[in-house]
Write a protein that binds this DNA or RNA. Structure first.
Lengths: 334, 334
DNA sequence: TGAAAAATCGCAAACGTTTCCGCTTTATAT
DNA sequence: ATATAAAGCGGAAACGTTTGCGATTTTTCA
C-alpha cells in the first residue's frame, strides 16, 4: 500500500527531488536528457503525483463541489453526468453531495465542501431559500447556481427561461384549438412563479381565461401529482387541456386519468415541463417543454472555471432558451 | 478568500497551535477551561479545518471514489445516491467519475482517483473485462465491485443473484400458464450469462423448450431493444411471453410491440429485469425482477469501510436476493 | 582565450495540519 | 514536607509537493 514518492524516484535517478518535480511539470529550467531519463524512471517505478500534497502548496485542489438535492432524480443525474464530463475535460474532479431533504443539510454540505478546499461550487438549489441559506459561504468560494432563477440577486446562475417555456407551450395548445387550459401544479418557488407567469402572459395575449389548480404543500413528484389530480378529477372537467408545471406532475395526472378512464389525449390534452427521460418512453410519449440540460451544465462549469481561473469578480445571469417537444399527449381540437 | 488557520486562532487565544488542534480533536491532554475558550474562539473567527492539510499528515482523505459507466442512468444514479448518503453518514465523501464509454477511460479514471489518494474505490464495472483492466490498481487501494458478478475472482463484490432472478421470473410465467417463453437480450457479460442460466435451469425443471433471441452487439438501451424487437417481430410469433434481460430492453420491446399493434399483455406477456424507476410509471407498469439497489449500495460501502478502517485483507462475495415485482405486463393464460 | 551570459540543477522554505516528546506546573500520596 | 505521579501545554518533526534563489557548469561571443 506504500506508494512511491518524488523522493524515491529522485534517489533512484540520482538527482534532487526538485529536479523530478520539474521534469514532470514541464519546467523549462531542466536539461532535456535528464528530463527523459527521469520521466522514464517515473514510469517504471509507477509514480503518480500525490494530489493532496500538491494542492497543499498550490493552494488549489482542482476540485469542484457539486451539490444537488438528490442525484436519484433524472433531472439531476443528467446534470451531474454532463457536469462531471465537462469538468474532467478541463482537469477538474467532482465531489458529489446530496443536499436533500432540508436546508440544514444543504448548509452542512456546503460547509463541508469548503473544508475540503474545493476550488468552486456548483449548486442546484433546493429552492429560493437556498440563496440566503448559504450566503455566508458564497463569498468564500466561487459559486454558481444552476437551474433555479435567482432573479436579480448578485450571484451567478444559469437557468432556462421558464416563463418563455410555458408561454410557447400554451400558445401551442391554443394553435391546436384549445381555449380552456388549466395550469396544474406548483407556484411557490421562483421557478414555478415564472412558469405560471408565462402561462398568464399567454392567456392575456390570447384572451383566454386563467385557471389554476394546485395544493399548498406540493412537491414535484409523480405521487404528489397523482394525489392532486385525483382531487382535481373529482370535480367536473370543464377544460380541454392541462399544463402541468412539471413532467413528474404530468405523469401523476396521467396515472389518475388512466385510472378514471379519462382518455389522454382523446378527452384531455396534457403538456409537461422539463423533458425528463421518462417523457419519451413508449406509451408515455409526453409532449413537453425541454430544458437544455447538457448546455446548462456545460455553461455552468464554464462560468465556474472562469471565476476560478481568472478570478472574475462580477456575476452573470445566463438564461437559456427552452424548446417545445411535440409528442403524443396533445391533440388538435376542432 | 483568505481562510483562517490554526495559527491564527492560536495567536488570538495566546496558545500554541498544537493546543488548538487538540481542543478541536477532543484530545484528553488538555484542560477543559482552555478547550472551551479555544473552541469558542474558533467559532467566532469562523475557523474550519483544512481537510487537505489534515489528510496530508493523517495519510487518510476520508474520500471514496465512485466510478460508474455513466450516472445519467437510472440504475447508477440511484446507486450513487444511496452510496453517497451512506458514505457521508460515516464521514466519507464521494468523488464521482463516469468511466464510460470505453475501458481506456475507465483505467484513466481509476488512476486519477489513486492520485487523489482516495481511501477506497467503489466501482460499477463496464463489463467483465473491468477486472483485468484495473487489476494493477486494486491492490494499491481497497476496492469493491458493485453489481457485476466476478465469479470466483479474488476480489470483493456485491451483486444480486441474477440466475435466481430469471429463475423465479420464468417460474412465475409458468404458473401463469405460459409454456412458450422467449428469452430476449444480452448474453455476453457475466451478469447476463447468469441471467440466461437461470432461465435455462427453470426451463429444464419445468420441461420447457429454451428459446433465445439476441444480436451480437447489443447494448442495454431502449433503442437497442427496440431495434432487436423490430427484427424479432418480423418473424412469426410462436411464443406467449418474452423475458427481457433488462428493463431497458423490455421497454424497447414494448415500443416495437405498440407500433405493430401487438397487445401487451393481451397477446404477449412481458417481464423485465432490474426494476428501474421507469418500470412503475403509468401505462408502463412493467412486471419485472427487482434488484435491491439501496441495500447493494449500503452493503458495498460497509464492505469498503471495513477494508479501509480495519485493513481487512480477504475478499467477500455478497450476493443479495432479487424479488419479483408483479405489475401489469403479464397475464394469466388459460 | 577569457569573461559574461545562459543553462542546469540542488537547497530549503512553505502549505496547514497532527502527534510525539519533553518541559513545567499542579495534584496526590506517604 | 517531600517525593512522585499526573496533567497541561509548547516545540518541532513529519506528510509530499512546488518554486524562488543561489551555485555550478556549460555555452556564447568578442
Amino acid at each position: 500500500m506504500k506508494s512511491v514518492t518524488l523522493k524515491d524516484v529522485a534517489k533512484a535517478a540520482g538527482v534532487s527531488y526538485a529536479t523530478v518535480s520539474r521534469a514532470l511539470s514541464g519546467s523549462p529550467q531542466i536539461g532535456s536528457d535528464t528530463r527523459e531519463r527521469v520521466i522514464k524512471l517515473c514510469d517504471e517505478m509507477g509514480y503518480t503525483t500525490n494530489y493532496v500534497a500538491r494542492s497543499m502548496v498550490m493552494k488549489k485542489t482542482d476540485l469542484i463541489g457539486l451539490v444537488v438535492p438528490s442525484v436519484d432524480n433524472q433531472f439531476m443525474s443528467e446534470m451531474a453526468y454532463h457536469a462531471e464530463m465537462s469538468a474532467r475535460a478541463h482537469g477538474y474532479n467532482i465531489m458529489l453531495c446530496n443536499s436533500g431533504p432540508d436546508l440544514k443539510r444543504e448548509k452542512t454540505v456546503v460547509k463541508l465542501l469548503l473544508g475540503r478546499q474545493v476550488d468552486g461550487i456548483l449548486i442546484v438549489p433546493q429552492g429560493p431559500q437556498t440563496y440566503e441559506n448559504i450566503r455566508a459561504y458564497t463569498d468564500q468560494v466561487p459559486t454558481v447556481f444552476v437551474s433555479e432563477n435567482l432573479r436579480d440577486q448578485p450571484q451567478s446562475y444559469v437557468t432556462v427561461d421558464n416563463s418563455r417555456g410555458t408561454y410557447i407551450g400554451t400558445k401551442y395548445l391554443y394553435e391546436l384549438g384549445h381555449r380552456d387550459i388549466l395550469y396544474f401544479g406548483r407556484r411557490r418557488t421562483t421557478t414555478h412563479q415564472l412558469r405560471a407567469e408565462g402561462y398568464m402572459r399567454a392567456c392575456q395575449e390570447l384572451g383566454l381565461q386563467q385557471r389554476f389548480f394546485n395544493s399548498e404543500y406540493s412537491r414535484s413528484s409523480i405521487s404528489n401529482g397523482y394525489q392532486m389530480a385525483r382531487e382535481l378529477f373529482s370535480r367536473p372537467i370543464d377544460y380541454t387541456a392541462i399544463f402541468a408545471s412539471t413532467d413528474s406532475h404530468a405523469l401523476g395526472v396521467m396515472r389518475a386519468a388512466d385510472e378514471l378512464r379519462i382518455d389522454i389525449p382523446g378527452h384531455l390534452s396534457l403538456i409537461g415541463f422539463d423533458n425528463i427521460p421518462s417523457a419519451e418512453l413508449p406509451r408515455i410519449e409526453l409532449t413537453t417543454i425541454e430544458q437544455p440540460l447538457r448546455e446548462m451544465a456545460v455553461q455552468a462549469v464554464d462560468m465556474l472555471r472562469d471565476k476560478i481561473e481568472h478570478g472574475t469578480q462580477g456575476y452573470v445571469h445566463q438564461i437559456l432558451l427552452p424548446g417545445l417537444v411535440k409528442r403524443g399527449t396533445c391533440r388538435t381540437l376542432d
